[in-house]
Design a protein around this nucleic acid. Structure first.
Lengths: 260, 260
DNA sequence: TAGTGGTCTAGACCACCAT
DNA sequence: TGGTGGTCTAGACCACTAT
Protein backbone atom coordinates (compact mmCIF):
# COMPACT_ATOMS: atom_id res chain seq x y z
CA UNK A 1 0.00 0.00 0.00
CA UNK A 2 1.83 3.09 -1.17
CA UNK A 3 0.96 6.72 -0.84
CA UNK A 4 -0.97 6.53 -4.08
CA UNK A 5 -3.67 4.25 -2.75
CA UNK A 6 -5.06 6.72 -0.26
CA UNK A 7 -8.49 7.19 -1.79
CA UNK A 8 -9.98 3.77 -2.11
CA UNK A 9 -13.55 4.94 -2.38
CA UNK A 10 -12.85 8.09 -4.33
CA UNK A 11 -16.16 9.37 -5.66
CA UNK A 12 -16.65 9.21 -9.41
CA UNK A 13 -17.13 12.98 -9.64
CA UNK A 14 -13.78 13.60 -8.00
CA UNK A 15 -12.06 10.97 -10.10
CA UNK A 16 -13.33 12.62 -13.26
CA UNK A 17 -12.33 16.03 -11.92
CA UNK A 18 -8.83 14.70 -11.27
CA UNK A 19 -8.63 13.29 -14.78
CA UNK A 20 -9.67 16.57 -16.34
CA UNK A 21 -7.37 18.54 -14.06
CA UNK A 22 -4.53 16.34 -15.18
CA UNK A 23 -5.31 17.09 -18.80
CA UNK A 24 -5.36 20.81 -18.04
CA UNK A 25 -2.14 21.06 -16.06
CA UNK A 26 -0.50 18.53 -18.39
CA UNK A 27 -1.30 20.65 -21.40
CA UNK A 28 -3.62 18.24 -23.20
CA UNK A 29 -6.27 20.88 -22.64
CA UNK A 30 -5.03 24.42 -23.20
CA UNK A 31 -6.47 27.72 -21.99
CA UNK A 32 -9.50 28.51 -24.11
CA UNK A 33 -10.16 24.89 -25.04
CA UNK A 34 -13.65 23.56 -24.53
CA UNK A 35 -14.16 20.61 -22.25
CA UNK A 36 -16.31 17.75 -23.52
CA UNK A 37 -19.95 18.52 -22.76
CA UNK A 38 -21.48 17.19 -19.57
CA UNK A 39 -23.55 14.73 -21.56
CA UNK A 40 -20.49 13.49 -23.45
CA UNK A 41 -18.48 13.08 -20.25
CA UNK A 42 -21.34 11.16 -18.69
CA UNK A 43 -21.60 8.79 -21.64
CA UNK A 44 -17.87 8.17 -22.11
CA UNK A 45 -17.36 7.56 -18.40
CA UNK A 46 -20.48 5.55 -17.76
CA UNK A 47 -21.87 7.95 -15.16
CA UNK A 48 -24.96 10.10 -14.82
CA UNK A 49 -24.92 13.59 -16.23
CA UNK A 50 -25.31 15.11 -12.76
CA UNK A 51 -22.14 13.33 -11.68
CA UNK A 52 -20.19 14.65 -14.66
CA UNK A 53 -21.66 18.05 -13.90
CA UNK A 54 -20.39 17.82 -10.31
CA UNK A 55 -16.90 17.09 -11.64
CA UNK A 56 -16.95 20.20 -13.80
CA UNK A 57 -18.26 22.19 -10.86
CA UNK A 58 -15.32 21.10 -8.73
CA UNK A 59 -12.99 22.49 -11.38
CA UNK A 60 -14.83 25.78 -11.66
CA UNK A 61 -14.69 26.08 -7.87
CA UNK A 62 -10.93 25.71 -8.14
CA UNK A 63 -10.84 28.44 -10.74
CA UNK A 64 -9.48 26.15 -13.47
CA UNK A 65 -12.57 26.16 -15.64
CA UNK A 66 -15.33 28.59 -16.47
CA UNK A 67 -18.78 27.50 -17.64
CA UNK A 68 -20.75 29.52 -20.18
CA UNK A 69 -24.44 28.93 -20.51
CA UNK A 70 -25.30 27.50 -23.92
CA UNK A 71 -21.67 27.44 -25.08
CA UNK A 72 -19.72 25.01 -22.98
CA UNK A 73 -17.12 24.83 -20.23
CA UNK A 74 -13.71 26.25 -21.07
CA UNK A 75 -10.23 26.03 -19.61
CA UNK A 76 -9.51 29.38 -18.00
CA UNK A 77 -6.67 31.48 -19.26
CA UNK A 78 -4.60 32.72 -16.34
CA UNK A 79 -4.29 36.44 -16.97
CA UNK A 80 -1.08 38.12 -16.00
CA UNK A 81 -1.34 39.79 -12.65
CA UNK A 82 -1.49 43.54 -12.42
CA UNK A 83 0.45 44.66 -9.39
CA UNK A 84 -0.42 47.73 -7.40
CA UNK A 85 1.65 49.24 -4.64
CA UNK A 86 2.19 52.48 -2.84
CA UNK A 87 3.54 54.08 -6.02
CA UNK A 88 -0.14 54.11 -6.93
CA UNK A 89 -0.19 57.44 -5.09
CA UNK A 90 3.19 58.77 -6.10
CA UNK A 91 3.30 62.32 -7.37
CA UNK A 92 6.41 61.51 -9.34
CA UNK A 93 4.68 58.83 -11.38
CA UNK A 94 1.76 61.18 -11.82
CA UNK A 95 3.89 64.04 -13.09
CA UNK A 96 6.46 62.15 -15.12
CA UNK A 97 4.10 60.00 -17.11
CA UNK A 98 0.95 62.06 -17.01
CA UNK A 99 -0.77 58.76 -16.37
CA UNK A 100 -2.60 57.45 -13.39
CA UNK A 101 -0.78 54.47 -11.84
CA UNK A 102 -3.58 52.19 -12.97
CA UNK A 103 -3.13 53.30 -16.56
CA UNK A 104 0.65 53.07 -16.30
CA UNK A 105 0.57 49.54 -14.91
CA UNK A 106 -1.88 48.30 -17.52
CA UNK A 107 -0.04 49.90 -20.42
CA UNK A 108 3.22 48.42 -19.14
CA UNK A 109 1.64 45.01 -19.61
CA UNK A 110 0.72 45.83 -23.20
CA UNK A 111 -2.97 46.09 -22.43
CA UNK A 112 -5.51 48.87 -22.81
CA UNK A 113 -6.73 50.60 -19.66
CA UNK A 114 -9.87 52.61 -19.14
CA UNK A 115 -11.47 54.21 -16.10
CA UNK A 116 -14.86 55.84 -15.77
CA UNK A 117 -16.62 57.69 -13.00
CA UNK A 118 -19.79 55.68 -12.57
CA UNK A 119 -21.54 57.62 -9.82
CA UNK A 120 -20.98 60.59 -7.58
CA UNK A 121 -23.01 62.04 -4.75
CA UNK A 122 -23.17 63.30 -1.20
CA UNK A 123 -24.01 60.44 1.13
CA UNK A 124 -23.99 59.16 4.68
CA UNK A 125 -20.79 57.13 5.13
CA UNK A 126 -20.65 53.49 6.28
CA UNK A 127 -19.44 53.25 9.87
CA UNK A 128 -15.96 51.95 9.07
CA UNK A 129 -15.51 54.87 6.69
CA UNK A 130 -16.77 57.41 9.21
CA UNK A 131 -14.36 56.06 11.82
CA UNK A 132 -11.33 56.30 9.60
CA UNK A 133 -12.14 59.73 8.19
CA UNK A 134 -13.26 61.07 11.56
CA UNK A 135 -16.61 62.33 10.26
CA UNK A 136 -20.19 61.81 11.37
CA UNK A 137 -21.78 58.49 10.44
CA UNK A 138 -25.27 59.99 10.87
CA UNK A 139 -25.25 62.84 8.37
CA UNK A 140 -24.34 63.24 4.71
CA UNK A 141 -20.79 64.04 5.72
CA UNK A 142 -18.96 62.67 2.68
CA UNK A 143 -18.87 62.71 -1.08
CA UNK A 144 -18.90 59.26 -2.62
CA UNK A 145 -17.24 58.68 -6.00
CA UNK A 146 -17.57 55.26 -7.62
CA UNK A 147 -14.99 54.48 -10.32
CA UNK A 148 -14.86 51.46 -12.57
CA UNK A 149 -11.54 50.31 -13.99
CA UNK A 150 -11.30 48.32 -17.21
CA UNK A 151 -8.58 46.32 -18.94
CA UNK A 152 -9.18 45.62 -22.60
CA UNK A 153 -12.81 46.52 -22.03
CA UNK A 154 -13.25 44.07 -19.17
CA UNK A 155 -14.03 45.46 -15.72
CA UNK A 156 -11.36 44.40 -13.21
CA UNK A 157 -11.71 46.83 -10.32
CA UNK A 158 -14.31 49.02 -8.66
CA UNK A 159 -13.04 51.82 -6.44
CA UNK A 160 -15.31 53.78 -4.14
CA UNK A 161 -13.75 56.97 -2.81
CA UNK A 162 -15.11 58.84 0.19
CA UNK A 163 -14.11 62.47 0.78
CA UNK A 164 -15.22 64.56 3.76
CA UNK A 165 -17.75 67.12 2.56
CA UNK A 166 -15.78 69.83 4.36
CA UNK A 167 -12.87 69.20 2.03
CA UNK A 168 -14.75 68.52 -1.18
CA UNK A 169 -17.36 71.27 -0.89
CA UNK A 170 -17.21 73.71 -3.80
CA UNK A 171 -14.35 71.89 -5.58
CA UNK A 172 -14.09 69.52 -8.50
CA UNK A 173 -13.83 66.74 -5.90
CA UNK A 174 -17.56 67.12 -5.28
CA UNK A 175 -18.53 67.23 -8.93
CA UNK A 176 -17.84 64.89 -11.81
CA UNK A 177 -16.26 67.72 -13.76
CA UNK A 178 -13.15 67.26 -15.74
CA UNK A 179 -11.40 64.85 -13.45
CA UNK A 180 -9.62 61.80 -14.77
CA UNK A 181 -9.41 59.59 -11.73
CA UNK A 182 -5.62 59.79 -11.81
CA UNK A 183 -5.67 63.50 -11.18
CA UNK A 184 -7.56 63.13 -7.94
CA UNK A 185 -4.50 63.50 -5.72
CA UNK A 186 -3.47 66.66 -7.55
CA UNK A 187 -6.86 68.12 -6.67
CA UNK A 188 -6.32 67.18 -3.02
CA UNK A 189 -3.02 69.03 -3.10
CA UNK A 190 -4.90 72.09 -4.35
CA UNK A 191 -6.92 71.88 -1.15
CA UNK A 192 -3.79 71.62 0.97
CA UNK A 193 -3.79 67.86 1.44
CA UNK A 194 -0.69 66.27 -0.05
CA UNK A 195 -0.82 62.51 0.30
CA UNK A 196 2.16 61.51 2.42
CA UNK A 197 1.16 58.27 4.07
CA UNK A 198 -1.19 55.56 2.96
CA UNK A 199 -2.82 53.00 5.18
CA UNK A 200 -3.85 49.86 3.34
CA UNK A 201 -6.10 47.30 4.97
CA UNK A 202 -6.43 44.14 2.92
CA UNK A 203 -8.89 41.30 3.13
CA UNK A 204 -10.25 38.73 0.73
CA UNK A 205 -13.67 37.16 0.42
CA UNK A 206 -15.88 35.57 -2.17
CA UNK A 207 -17.93 38.09 -4.14
CA UNK A 208 -21.65 38.47 -3.70
CA UNK A 209 -23.79 37.55 -6.65
CA UNK A 210 -24.06 41.20 -7.68
CA UNK A 211 -20.32 41.81 -7.41
CA UNK A 212 -19.62 38.70 -9.47
CA UNK A 213 -22.01 40.01 -12.12
CA UNK A 214 -20.57 43.52 -12.13
CA UNK A 215 -17.01 42.29 -12.52
CA UNK A 216 -17.99 39.38 -14.76
CA UNK A 217 -16.19 37.05 -12.39
CA UNK A 218 -16.08 33.35 -13.13
CA UNK A 219 -16.55 30.91 -10.26
CA UNK A 220 -13.70 30.19 -7.92
CA UNK A 221 -12.26 33.69 -7.99
CA UNK A 222 -12.15 35.71 -4.77
CA UNK A 223 -12.34 39.44 -4.35
CA UNK A 224 -9.35 41.28 -2.96
CA UNK A 225 -10.74 44.13 -0.88
CA UNK A 226 -8.37 47.00 -0.15
CA UNK A 227 -9.40 49.79 2.18
CA UNK A 228 -7.02 52.65 1.45
CA UNK A 229 -6.83 55.70 3.68
CA UNK A 230 -4.90 58.74 2.44
CA UNK A 231 -3.08 60.74 5.12
CA UNK A 232 -1.24 64.05 4.90
CA UNK A 233 2.13 64.91 6.48
CA UNK A 234 0.40 65.46 9.83
CA UNK A 235 -1.21 62.05 9.45
CA UNK A 236 -4.64 63.59 9.08
CA UNK A 237 -6.94 61.34 7.01
CA UNK A 238 -8.52 63.21 4.13
CA UNK A 239 -9.72 60.47 1.80
CA UNK A 240 -10.67 56.79 1.86
CA UNK A 241 -11.02 54.48 -1.11
CA UNK A 242 -12.34 50.96 -1.02
CA UNK A 243 -11.06 48.91 -3.94
CA UNK A 244 -12.70 45.67 -4.96
CA UNK A 245 -10.35 43.79 -7.27
CA UNK A 246 -10.68 40.53 -9.10
CA UNK A 247 -8.00 38.47 -7.38
CA UNK A 248 -7.16 36.67 -10.61
CA UNK A 249 -6.30 39.93 -12.39
CA UNK A 250 -4.87 42.04 -9.63
CA UNK A 251 -2.38 41.72 -6.82
CA UNK A 252 -0.64 44.06 -4.41
CA UNK A 253 3.05 44.80 -4.16
CA UNK A 254 4.27 47.01 -1.35
CA UNK A 255 7.79 47.78 -0.27
CA UNK A 256 8.05 49.60 3.00
CA UNK A 257 10.43 50.45 5.75
CA UNK A 258 10.15 48.39 8.93
CA UNK A 259 9.50 50.70 11.86
CA UNK A 260 12.18 49.54 14.26
CA UNK B 1 -42.69 46.96 -12.48
CA UNK B 2 -40.45 48.27 -9.74
CA UNK B 3 -36.90 47.32 -8.92
CA UNK B 4 -38.12 44.53 -6.68
CA UNK B 5 -39.66 42.46 -9.47
CA UNK B 6 -36.45 41.79 -11.31
CA UNK B 7 -36.31 38.04 -10.91
CA UNK B 8 -39.53 36.72 -12.32
CA UNK B 9 -38.27 33.21 -12.89
CA UNK B 10 -36.06 33.00 -9.86
CA UNK B 11 -35.10 29.36 -9.37
CA UNK B 12 -36.46 27.64 -6.29
CA UNK B 13 -32.96 26.93 -4.96
CA UNK B 14 -32.07 30.60 -5.09
CA UNK B 15 -35.38 31.63 -3.54
CA UNK B 16 -34.79 29.29 -0.62
CA UNK B 17 -31.21 30.52 -0.31
CA UNK B 18 -32.49 34.10 -0.18
CA UNK B 19 -35.01 33.17 2.49
CA UNK B 20 -32.36 31.50 4.64
CA UNK B 21 -29.91 34.35 4.06
CA UNK B 22 -32.57 36.77 5.24
CA UNK B 23 -33.01 34.76 8.44
CA UNK B 24 -29.27 34.80 9.00
CA UNK B 25 -28.59 38.48 8.42
CA UNK B 26 -31.87 39.35 10.15
CA UNK B 27 -30.83 37.49 13.25
CA UNK B 28 -33.53 34.81 13.24
CA UNK B 29 -30.67 32.38 12.78
CA UNK B 30 -27.62 33.20 14.86
CA UNK B 31 -24.02 32.11 14.46
CA UNK B 32 -23.74 28.50 15.57
CA UNK B 33 -27.41 27.73 14.94
CA UNK B 34 -28.23 24.68 12.89
CA UNK B 35 -30.21 25.10 9.71
CA UNK B 36 -33.16 22.80 9.13
CA UNK B 37 -31.93 19.60 7.51
CA UNK B 38 -31.98 19.30 3.74
CA UNK B 39 -34.81 16.78 3.99
CA UNK B 40 -36.83 19.08 6.23
CA UNK B 41 -36.30 22.07 3.96
CA UNK B 42 -37.37 20.00 0.97
CA UNK B 43 -40.55 18.88 2.69
CA UNK B 44 -41.57 22.24 4.12
CA UNK B 45 -40.94 24.01 0.83
CA UNK B 46 -42.40 21.37 -1.44
CA UNK B 47 -39.16 20.84 -3.38
CA UNK B 48 -36.79 17.94 -3.96
CA UNK B 49 -33.98 17.33 -1.54
CA UNK B 50 -31.39 18.10 -4.21
CA UNK B 51 -32.94 21.50 -4.70
CA UNK B 52 -32.83 22.29 -1.00
CA UNK B 53 -29.27 21.00 -1.01
CA UNK B 54 -28.38 23.41 -3.81
CA UNK B 55 -29.78 26.29 -1.74
CA UNK B 56 -27.57 25.36 1.21
CA UNK B 57 -24.62 25.04 -1.14
CA UNK B 58 -25.14 28.58 -2.41
CA UNK B 59 -24.90 29.81 1.18
CA UNK B 60 -21.76 27.80 1.93
CA UNK B 61 -20.22 29.21 -1.25
CA UNK B 62 -20.94 32.68 0.12
CA UNK B 63 -19.26 31.75 3.36
CA UNK B 64 -22.43 32.22 5.44
CA UNK B 65 -22.90 28.57 6.31
CA UNK B 66 -20.68 25.60 6.94
CA UNK B 67 -21.84 22.00 6.46
CA UNK B 68 -20.65 19.20 8.71
CA UNK B 69 -21.05 15.63 7.60
CA UNK B 70 -23.45 13.75 9.85
CA UNK B 71 -24.18 16.78 12.05
CA UNK B 72 -25.90 19.43 9.99
CA UNK B 73 -25.35 22.80 8.40
CA UNK B 74 -24.54 25.66 10.73
CA UNK B 75 -24.52 29.43 10.55
CA UNK B 76 -20.88 30.48 10.51
CA UNK B 77 -19.57 32.66 13.28
CA UNK B 78 -17.60 35.51 11.82
CA UNK B 79 -14.33 35.45 13.75
CA UNK B 80 -12.68 38.70 14.55
CA UNK B 81 -9.99 39.56 12.09
CA UNK B 82 -6.38 39.37 13.12
CA UNK B 83 -4.50 42.18 11.45
CA UNK B 84 -0.90 41.94 10.46
CA UNK B 85 1.27 44.78 9.22
CA UNK B 86 4.86 45.78 8.91
CA UNK B 87 5.22 45.91 12.70
CA UNK B 88 5.26 42.13 12.31
CA UNK B 89 8.99 42.61 11.81
CA UNK B 90 9.62 45.40 14.26
CA UNK B 91 12.55 44.94 16.61
CA UNK B 92 10.84 47.24 19.10
CA UNK B 93 7.81 44.99 19.42
CA UNK B 94 10.13 42.03 19.66
CA UNK B 95 12.23 43.51 22.44
CA UNK B 96 9.56 45.31 24.44
CA UNK B 97 7.08 42.48 24.67
CA UNK B 98 9.34 39.48 24.22
CA UNK B 99 6.60 38.19 21.97
CA UNK B 100 6.49 37.51 18.29
CA UNK B 101 4.07 39.84 16.52
CA UNK B 102 1.79 36.90 15.83
CA UNK B 103 1.62 36.07 19.51
CA UNK B 104 1.17 39.72 20.44
CA UNK B 105 -1.69 40.24 18.00
CA UNK B 106 -3.54 37.11 19.08
CA UNK B 107 -3.12 37.80 22.80
CA UNK B 108 -4.36 41.35 22.23
CA UNK B 109 -7.60 39.83 20.98
CA UNK B 110 -7.94 37.72 24.12
CA UNK B 111 -7.14 34.50 22.30
CA UNK B 112 -4.44 31.88 22.73
CA UNK B 113 -1.65 31.74 20.15
CA UNK B 114 0.65 28.89 19.33
CA UNK B 115 3.30 28.36 16.66
CA UNK B 116 5.22 25.23 15.81
CA UNK B 117 8.02 24.43 13.42
CA UNK B 118 6.54 21.68 11.30
CA UNK B 119 9.41 20.92 8.98
CA UNK B 120 12.91 22.10 8.18
CA UNK B 121 15.37 21.09 5.49
CA UNK B 122 17.74 22.11 2.74
CA UNK B 123 15.87 22.21 -0.56
CA UNK B 124 15.83 23.47 -4.11
CA UNK B 125 13.81 26.71 -4.13
CA UNK B 126 10.75 27.37 -6.31
CA UNK B 127 11.60 29.72 -9.16
CA UNK B 128 9.81 32.75 -7.74
CA UNK B 129 11.74 32.28 -4.52
CA UNK B 130 15.09 31.87 -6.30
CA UNK B 131 14.46 35.07 -8.27
CA UNK B 132 13.69 37.16 -5.23
CA UNK B 133 16.54 35.79 -3.09
CA UNK B 134 19.00 35.84 -5.99
CA UNK B 135 20.02 32.20 -5.51
CA UNK B 136 20.21 29.23 -7.85
CA UNK B 137 16.91 27.54 -8.67
CA UNK B 138 18.76 24.36 -9.69
CA UNK B 139 20.61 23.44 -6.52
CA UNK B 140 19.71 23.03 -2.87
CA UNK B 141 20.51 26.67 -2.32
CA UNK B 142 18.06 27.41 0.49
CA UNK B 143 16.86 26.21 3.87
CA UNK B 144 13.11 25.78 4.04
CA UNK B 145 11.30 26.19 7.35
CA UNK B 146 7.58 25.47 7.53
CA UNK B 147 5.74 26.99 10.49
CA UNK B 148 2.14 26.47 11.49
CA UNK B 149 0.32 29.13 13.46
CA UNK B 150 -2.63 28.35 15.70
CA UNK B 151 -5.30 30.40 17.45
CA UNK B 152 -7.12 28.62 20.25
CA UNK B 153 -5.77 25.37 18.84
CA UNK B 154 -7.12 25.99 15.36
CA UNK B 155 -4.60 26.39 12.53
CA UNK B 156 -5.00 29.78 10.83
CA UNK B 157 -1.72 30.35 8.99
CA UNK B 158 1.09 28.40 7.42
CA UNK B 159 4.35 30.24 6.83
CA UNK B 160 7.15 28.83 4.71
CA UNK B 161 10.45 30.63 5.14
CA UNK B 162 13.33 30.32 2.68
CA UNK B 163 16.83 31.34 3.72
CA UNK B 164 19.90 31.23 1.44
CA UNK B 165 22.13 28.37 2.51
CA UNK B 166 25.09 30.74 2.51
CA UNK B 167 23.47 32.71 5.31
CA UNK B 168 21.95 29.85 7.28
CA UNK B 169 24.85 27.40 7.11
CA UNK B 170 26.15 26.51 10.53
CA UNK B 171 23.63 28.63 12.43
CA UNK B 172 20.41 27.95 14.30
CA UNK B 173 18.64 29.16 11.15
CA UNK B 174 19.50 25.88 9.48
CA UNK B 175 18.47 23.70 12.42
CA UNK B 176 15.29 23.43 14.39
CA UNK B 177 17.16 24.15 17.60
CA UNK B 178 15.86 26.41 20.22
CA UNK B 179 14.20 28.93 17.96
CA UNK B 180 10.77 30.25 18.74
CA UNK B 181 9.67 31.55 15.36
CA UNK B 182 9.44 35.07 16.75
CA UNK B 183 13.15 35.16 17.42
CA UNK B 184 14.02 34.50 13.81
CA UNK B 185 14.86 38.10 12.99
CA UNK B 186 17.13 38.36 16.00
CA UNK B 187 19.08 35.42 14.60
CA UNK B 188 19.35 37.19 11.25
CA UNK B 189 20.78 40.21 13.04
CA UNK B 190 23.41 37.92 14.56
CA UNK B 191 24.43 37.12 11.00
CA UNK B 192 24.64 40.79 10.06
CA UNK B 193 21.26 41.08 8.39
CA UNK B 194 19.01 43.56 10.17
CA UNK B 195 15.59 43.67 8.56
CA UNK B 196 15.10 47.21 7.32
CA UNK B 197 12.68 46.94 4.43
CA UNK B 198 9.96 44.45 3.73
CA UNK B 199 8.42 43.77 0.38
CA UNK B 200 4.95 42.27 0.59
CA UNK B 201 3.26 40.81 -2.46
CA UNK B 202 -0.35 39.90 -1.84
CA UNK B 203 -2.75 37.75 -3.81
CA UNK B 204 -5.84 35.74 -3.02
CA UNK B 205 -7.13 32.48 -4.40
CA UNK B 206 -9.28 29.56 -3.41
CA UNK B 207 -7.40 26.89 -1.47
CA UNK B 208 -6.59 23.53 -2.97
CA UNK B 209 -8.27 20.55 -1.38
CA UNK B 210 -5.14 19.82 0.66
CA UNK B 211 -4.78 23.39 1.87
CA UNK B 212 -8.43 23.47 2.87
CA UNK B 213 -7.89 20.28 4.85
CA UNK B 214 -4.70 21.51 6.53
CA UNK B 215 -6.27 24.77 7.63
CA UNK B 216 -9.68 23.18 8.31
CA UNK B 217 -11.23 25.76 6.03
CA UNK B 218 -14.97 25.75 5.46
CA UNK B 219 -16.27 26.36 1.95
CA UNK B 220 -16.43 29.85 0.56
CA UNK B 221 -13.28 31.06 2.30
CA UNK B 222 -10.32 32.19 0.18
CA UNK B 223 -6.66 32.04 1.02
CA UNK B 224 -4.73 35.25 1.42
CA UNK B 225 -1.25 34.55 0.10
CA UNK B 226 1.50 36.94 1.19
CA UNK B 227 4.98 36.66 -0.25
CA UNK B 228 7.22 38.56 2.13
CA UNK B 229 10.82 39.39 1.27
CA UNK B 230 13.09 40.66 4.04
CA UNK B 231 15.71 43.24 2.95
CA UNK B 232 18.58 44.78 4.87
CA UNK B 233 19.64 48.43 4.89
CA UNK B 234 21.41 47.94 1.54
CA UNK B 235 18.19 46.41 0.18
CA UNK B 236 19.83 43.01 -0.08
CA UNK B 237 17.23 40.23 0.23
CA UNK B 238 18.14 37.68 2.86
CA UNK B 239 14.91 35.85 3.61
CA UNK B 240 11.57 35.13 1.99
CA UNK B 241 8.44 33.86 3.71
CA UNK B 242 5.27 32.78 2.00
CA UNK B 243 2.27 33.04 4.29
CA UNK B 244 -0.98 31.28 3.56
CA UNK B 245 -3.70 32.74 5.71
CA UNK B 246 -7.35 31.92 6.12
CA UNK B 247 -8.93 35.09 4.79
CA UNK B 248 -11.76 34.86 7.30
CA UNK B 249 -9.35 34.96 10.27
CA UNK B 250 -6.58 37.17 9.01
CA UNK B 251 -6.17 40.47 7.26
CA UNK B 252 -3.33 42.85 6.52
CA UNK B 253 -2.88 46.39 7.75
CA UNK B 254 0.02 48.40 6.43
CA UNK B 255 0.80 52.06 6.90
CA UNK B 256 3.59 53.34 4.71
CA UNK B 257 5.07 56.49 3.36
CA UNK B 258 4.21 57.36 -0.23
CA UNK B 259 7.40 57.65 -2.23
CA UNK B 260 6.89 61.02 -3.86
C1' DT C 1 -32.97 23.74 -34.85
C1' DA C 2 -29.49 21.27 -32.40
C1' DG C 3 -26.46 21.40 -28.68
C1' DT C 4 -25.03 23.50 -24.57
C1' DG C 5 -25.27 24.57 -19.50
C1' DG C 6 -28.98 25.58 -15.57
C1' DT C 7 -32.41 23.71 -12.80
C1' DC C 8 -35.27 20.19 -10.93
C1' DT C 9 -37.42 15.60 -9.53
C1' DA C 10 -37.87 11.30 -6.78
C1' DG C 11 -35.82 8.21 -5.64
C1' DA C 12 -31.22 5.28 -3.74
C1' DC C 13 -27.11 3.95 -1.00
C1' DC C 14 -23.00 5.39 1.68
C1' DA C 15 -20.30 7.78 5.47
C1' DC C 16 -20.47 10.10 9.62
C1' DC C 17 -22.31 11.55 14.17
C1' DA C 18 -24.92 11.41 18.36
C1' DT C 19 -27.60 8.71 21.40
C1' DT D 1 -30.05 3.10 15.69
C1' DG D 2 -31.86 7.17 13.52
C1' DG D 3 -30.74 11.38 11.52
C1' DT D 4 -27.42 13.99 9.08
C1' DG D 5 -24.75 15.40 4.94
C1' DG D 6 -22.20 13.20 0.58
C1' DT D 7 -22.81 10.99 -3.63
C1' DC D 8 -25.25 9.07 -7.43
C1' DT D 9 -28.95 7.74 -10.94
C1' DA D 10 -32.04 8.46 -14.94
C1' DG D 11 -34.70 10.90 -16.32
C1' DA D 12 -37.17 16.02 -17.45
C1' DC D 13 -37.83 20.86 -18.93
C1' DC D 14 -35.88 25.58 -19.38
C1' DA D 15 -32.57 29.27 -21.06
C1' DC D 16 -28.99 30.42 -23.91
C1' DT D 17 -25.80 30.13 -28.11
C1' DA D 18 -24.68 29.01 -32.55
C1' DT D 19 -25.87 27.71 -37.17
Amino acid sequence: MGVTSRHVHEPASRRLANELRGQIVGGDLSPGDRLPSERTLAETHGIARNTAREAVRLLTDEGLVTAEHGRGAFVRAQPRLLRFGQHRYSRKVREETGLSPFHAEVIAQGLTPNAVLDRIGRVQPPTHVAERLDVSPRTKSVVERVNWYFVDGEPVQIGTTYIPWKIAEGTELATGDNLGSGDLYARFEDQGYAITYTREEVTARMPTRDEARDLRMPGGVPLLVVTHTGLDAQRRPFELTEFKMRADHSGLDYTMKVDN
